[in-house]
């Protein structure tokens, strides 16, 4: 099922949680909504589910306008952050709940419901736990039951709110891989919310990066990591260093010197240079480079992180050096970013 979000705005008490968001999701896609807290990602997910109504705009499921459909009619599978399993029901009853509450004309027989439940339990690799209560399961198991329960109603879209948020790191990684497998096997259009970039990049076909109620960038993991289209995405995804620069004559300048980076498409003026600390080349001689003195240095796993003072200590920037590099305190290092981007300074 395709999902199309068209110019949606959502206000809470006149405070905009989402401002004019549009998003096209292809059938069978696995999409991550990634952003810091308060970015509106959960609100967007809840709007798609029908748990909230948009202030403006439309949400389409396929060609059908779903905006006025009640949540019961939308037929979405929603996995809640804390799973929201029904404590007083067994695992099998939890999974069968969505089928049991159907109007009698559409309700499968009890035997059929039981069969579906155990099928889904097989799918989520929890066979044999039908009679358990949620309190008797581990966090990871509860997560799987919640997913099975959401899938039992044969949803048109599967929505997951921070699906791994409440689990510890080890279980998280396992479940991540497993969710991908389930998705590939069942082909549900799936949207999940996360604030964990690693999770989003590893798992999703496309990542939707959000900030302050807006979509910053939509793209594959490679796209959002390698070619971030805004300072926010640069800063939010992966590690980044930034320096205030100036653009003049299609060249990037720091203070009174060009640093050997060409930016012909940019107009002249104040700007900020972004690059990844590890994505640099070290230079011996400096004619067109960034140079600075080492202010601090620390060992991070297989590399050395060095903080450089640029331009007499007014700016500091972090780069990654090989462990064997002889850079010591106060010594001078010259480098040039290999992959980088310059964004004009935003006029406030």
């Amino acid at each position: 099922m395709e999902v199309r979000v068209s110019n949606v705005r959502k206000e809470f008490d006149r405070f905009p949680a989402l401002r004019d968001v549009s998003l096209d999701i292809k059938s069978g896609e696995l999409i991550a909504l990634l952003g810091p807290s308060g970015s509106g990602k959960t609100t967007l997910l809840r709007l798609i589910a029908g748990l909230e109504r948009p202030t403006r705009g439309t949400i389409f499921f396929g060609d059908e306008d779903a905006s006025n459909r009640t949540i019961q009619e939308r037929n979405v599978g929603f996995v809640f952050q804390h799973y929201a399993l029904f404590r007083h029901m067994t695992v099998a009853d939890n999974i069968g709940f969505g089928l049991k509450v159907r109007p009698s004309a559409k309700r499968p027989t009890r035997a059929e419901i039981r069969r579906r439940a155990s099928e889904l339990l097989d799918l989520v690799q929890l066979s044999g736990l039908e009679k358990r209560y949620p309190a008797q399961l581990s966090g990871g198991q509860r997560q799987r039951v919640a997913l099975a329960r959401a899938m039992a109603i044969e949803p048109r879209v599967l929505l997951l709110d921070e699906p791994f948020g409440a689990l510890d790191a080890q279980v998280r990684r396992e479940l991540r891989r497993w969710l991908r497998e389930i998705h590939d096997a069942t082909g549900h259009t799936t949207i999940f919310v996360t604030h964990d970039q690693e999770e989003a990049l590893e798992l999703a076909d496309r990542v939707v990066v959000m900030s302050q109620g807006r979509i910053e960038q939509i793209g594959t993991a490679d796209e959002v990591y390698d070619t971030p289209n805004s300072p926010f995405v640069y800063g939010f995804i992966g590690e980044s260093s930034s320096l205030p620069v100036k653009v003049e004559d299609g060249q990037v300048w720091i203070a009174d010197r060009p640093i050997g980076l060409a930016a012909p498409e940019l107009t002249d003026g104040e700007a900020t240079l972004y690059f990844r600390p590890h994505d640099i080349e070290l230079l011996d001689e400096c004619n067109g480079c960034i140079a600075g003195t080492v202010a601090a240095s620390r060992r991070v796993a297989g590399t050395r992180r060095v903080e450089l003072e640029i331009g007499g200590g007014r700016e500091r920037v972090e780069i990654e050096l090989p462990v064997g590099h002889p850079a010591a305190q106060k010594s001078r290092v010259a480098f040039r970013p290999k992959r980088w981007k310059v964004f004009p300074k935003v006029v406030e």
Partner: peptide, 21 residues
């Protein structure tokens, strides 16, 4: 937990079913 009520609704339960079941 409001999530529990919302979960019941997303699974298709009407308000009456949510409350009583």
């Amino acid at each position: 937990d409001k999530e529990v009520e919302e979960a019941a609704a997303t699974l298709g339960a009407n308000r009456f079913q949510t409350i009583f079941r």
